[in-house]
Computed example of a mutant assay.
Amino acid sequence: MASDEGTVRVDSWIWSVRLTKTRSAAATACRGGHVRVNGERAKAAQAVRPGDEVRLQHAGRERVVVVSRLVRKRVGAAIAA
């Protein structure tokens, strides 16, 4: 799905916007059921699009983020915020 202009993998996006330290940690969170996209449990390869709501249970708290733009490569903290 990464070749499609309008989507990116959820595990890659979570890592790119610095919600997890590594992409493997993002994939593990998906496998463990700690990631939801628009209220549904997400697998690591699930595609996200602008406007999707991503919920991540991590480090004892829930982070709720709305995808405003697709990021394929890891970005700096200022841009991720």
Rank of each mutant, 00 (worst) to 15 (best):
K21Q: 11
K21L: 02
K21W: 07
K21T: 03
T22D: 04
T22V: 04
T22K: 12
T22N: 08
R23Q: 14
R23V: 14
S24A: 13
S24M: 12
S24Y: 05
S24N: 14
A25N: 13
A25D: 14
A26L: 08
A26I: 10
A27M: 09
A27F: 00
T28L: 11
T28I: 07
T28F: 02
A29S: 13
A29K: 13
C30E: 07
C30H: 12
C30V: 13
R31L: 14
G32N: 15
G32I: 08
G33N: 06
G33H: 11
G33L: 12
H34S: 14
V35M: 11
V35L: 11
V37G: 03
V37R: 10
V37L: 03
V37I: 09
N38I: 03
N38P: 06
N38D: 13
G39N: 12
G39W: 10
E40A: 03
E40C: 00
E40P: 01
E40T: 01
E40H: 04
R41C: 02
R41Y: 00
A42V: 05
A42W: 00
A42K: 11
A44C: 07
A44W: 05
A44E: 09
A45V: 08
A45Y: 03
A45L: 10
Q46E: 05
A47P: 02
A47W: 04
A47Y: 00
A47M: 05
V48N: 04
R49M: 08
R49F: 04
P50L: 09
P50H: 08
P50A: 10
G51T: 10
G51S: 13
E53M: 07
V54I: 15
V54M: 02
V54D: 03
V54K: 12
R55G: 00
R55T: 03
L56W: 01
L56C: 11
L56M: 09
L56K: 11
L56S: 10
Q57V: 10
Q57N: 10
Q57T: 08
Q57S: 12
Q57C: 06
Q57M: 09
H58F: 10
H58A: 12
H58D: 10
A59L: 11
A59P: 00
A59C: 04
A59Y: 02
G60V: 10
G60D: 10
G60Y: 12
R61M: 04
R61F: 02
R61P: 03
R61S: 12
R61D: 02
E62P: 01
E62Q: 15
E62K: 13
E62D: 06
R63V: 14
R63H: 07
V64D: 02
V64W: 02
V65W: 11
V65K: 14
V65E: 14
V66D: 04
V66F: 02
V67E: 01
V67W: 00
S68F: 05
S68Q: 15
S68L: 15
R69M: 02
R69K: 11
L70C: 04
L70S: 04
V71I: 12
V71H: 03
V71L: 05
R72V: 09
K73I: 00
R74H: 05
R74Y: 04
R74A: 07
R74N: 07
R74W: 02
V75D: 04
V75F: 01
G76K: 11
G76A: 13
A77S: 13
A77V: 14
A77L: 14
A77T: 14
A77C: 08
A77F: 05
A78T: 06
